[in-house]
């Protein structure tokens, strides 16, 4: 086995960050997320590799909050597209968990398949290497296994690291992973170590059959009750590693400008507001229903997997205490006989 001793971790991160922009899970101030290792400041930042996960998801590395699409010059005489903003800079995400790589898997389905390839996403994604961190100790709100994910085998990983206590087992999975292994060869040791043992999930969630059941539950009264206290604040969509809805807007000054995209949330009132005044989802109940149907049913119908990866962030962050696992449970138990 290839082993990276924890005493050599900093050296490894330094080495990797010379190859590419290296993103690591850090606690910074009062929040936590994925930040460039180069920006690490001892004293105020803390590496979170020993923690369960971080509050803000790593989707920003391949799908940033704001991204320019193309720039143009235009006036009544003529219009010219100047440049398209694909970014091919190499990046590495280190320490990403299975729930978050499964979310990236969902992103790959959305942006790279179904007739069109989103070139901005493709450029970033192709040049991003994933060093995933196998998880053996699920947290209180974790339910990735219920959503079909194996926390000890993160999907789409180029390398998987497994924490044995004083070291990481370093397991290359792809050619990209092999390249990194070669780059780190001076720091890796060749010896045996015991794979950690998987501990039980504290939170029992049963998603079996829920997607099927939801197909006939669009008009069910359960949505009235579940959506009552939702403020449609949108925090869930921002902390979710698999939420990807975006808006396209333009910034222009004089004859120049650029079109950009930015995160949008299906929870906002103007999400489906049409210029003529019609809004199919004007009510918060309708938007709430659409969000959970998308997560638990529509995405599965379209891409074969649910859009929720069981990371538990929305459960922690929701100001109204809305819990997707409770929703799954209530759907499973719902009475769908006529008149329900």
């Amino acid at each position: 086995m290839q082993i990276l001793s924890k005493s050599k971790l900093n050296a490894a991160l330094d080495l990797l960050s010379r190859q590419a922009e290296l993103f690591v899970p850090l606690a910074r101030g009062e929040e936590s997320g994925y930040y460039p290792w180069k920006s690490y400041q001892a004293g105020s930042d803390q590496l979170m590799l020993d923690a369960l996960n971080v509050m803000l998801p790593p989707k920003g590395v391949v799908f940033p909050q704001t991204e320019r699409i193309y720039s143009f010059t235009g006036n009544d005489k003529g219009v010219e597209i100047k440049e398209s903003f694909e970014n091919h800079d190499p990046r590495i995400i280190f320490g990403i968990r299975a729930c978050d790589t499964a979310a990236l898997d969902c992103f790959d389905d959305v942006f790279l398949t179904m007739g069109y390839v989103d070139s901005l996403y493709a450029a970033r994604r192709e040049n991003t290497t994933i060093i995933a961190h196998a998880c053996y100790r699920p947290g209180d709100n974790c339910f990735c296994a219920a959503m079909g994910i194996d926390p000890t085998e993160p999907t789409k990983a180029d390398v998987i690291i497994r924490d044995t206590g004083d070291a990481y087992i370093w397991e290359s999975k792809t050619d990209k992973g092999d390249k990194l292994t070669a780059a780190l060869s001076s720091l890796l040791e060749d010896r045996e170590a015991a794979t950690p043992e998987m501990q039980a999930f504290k939170h029992q969630v049963d998603y079996e059959g829920v997607a099927e059941k939801l197909k006939d539950m669009f008009e069910h009264s359960i949505w009235d009750e579940l959506s009552q206290t939702c403020q449609t604040c949108g925090i869930c969509t921002y902390v979710c590693p698999s939420c990807y809805c975006f808006d396209i807007q333009v910034k222009s000054w004089g004859d120049e400008g650029y079109r950009f995209r930015c995160y949008d949330s299906c929870m906002y009132p103007e999400y489906t507001q049409m210029a003529g005044g019609h809004n199919p989802r004007g009510d918060s109940r309708e938007r709430f229903r659409n969000r959970f149907l998308h997560k638990l049913e529509f995405f599965k119908e379209r891409y074969g997997k649910p859009l929720c990866t069981g990371c538990g962030r929305c459960i922690v962050a929701c100001p109204a205490g809305i819990d997707i696992t409770q929703i799954i449970k209530q759907i499973k138990e719902a009475d769908t006989s006529a008149g329900a």
Partner: peptide, 24 residues
């Protein structure tokens, strides 16, 4: 049908009717 559309290529998420995208 018609819906608010932004990307036109089935990626931004908003023009869905159920699991179908109106643009795609």
């Amino acid at each position: 049908l018609e819906m608010r559309m932004k990307c036109g290529i089935g990626k931004c998420g908003r023009c869905n009717v159920g699991s179908e995208y109106i643009c795609l």
